[in-house]
């Protein structure tokens, strides 16, 4: 027995027949839809490597049952840029060496995109550090991640003048 759901995935509508109610969004993406950009680092909401945007908000895909997301809009790292052109956050991660092994990187980047959309941090280093603390990086690329998010944030929204 399958459970039909609809998702808008990276801008395109998908009708999906779930073969199991236990499937998480992460395993749906990775094991059934071939979208392996989001990574499984802990599978328990403790590392952030699986971060994607659902209805515009960053969440841990590993803790979401896919069946519960019927009708949702999902944006993954694969849908962030078109063709060879990089999204400003992606370009900033390269320029500032915001990763080493690259495993946590798709999650870091989607988290940064979410953070910038939330408008919570601007270019304040301390607010960016806090806002990015849901994404572990074992290689220790945090300094580059901070610089990358700061840089991309400044490019993506009007600079906030200190009140």
């Amino acid at each position: 027995m399958t459970i039909p759901i609809r998702l808008t995935l990276n801008g395109k509508p998908h009708a999906i027949d779930l073969d199991d109610p236990r499937i998480t969004l992460l395993d749906l993406l990775r094991e059934r839809l071939g979208l392996t950009g989001a990574k499984k680092g802990c599978d328990r909401g403790q590392c952030g490597a699986c971060t994607v945007l659902v209805d515009g908000r960053r969440i841990n895909a590993c803790l979401q049952l896919a069946v519960s997301l019927d009708g949702a809009e999902v944006l993954t790292i694969e849908g962030l840029s078109e063709g060879d052109a990089l999204h400003p956050v992606q370009a900033a991660f390269i320029a500032h060496d915001g990763f080493q092994c690259g495993f946590c990187t798709p999650g870091q980047i989607m988290s940064a995109v979410g953070l910038i959309r939330e408008g919570r941090a601007g270019t304040d280093p301390e607010r960016i550090r806090e806002g990015m603390s849901g994404n572990l990086c074992r290689c220790g690329a945090y300094a580059g991640i901070l610089e990358a998010v700061k840089d991309a944030s400044a490019r993506m929204e009007p600079r906030e003048d200190a009140a």
Binding site: V54, R57, I59, N60, G114, S133, G134
Partner: peptide, 9 residues
């Protein structure tokens, strides 16, 4: 509490 991702959900 938790992380931004968890709070969003």
């Amino acid at each position: 509490g938790a992380s931004a991702q968890l709070r969003n959900a």
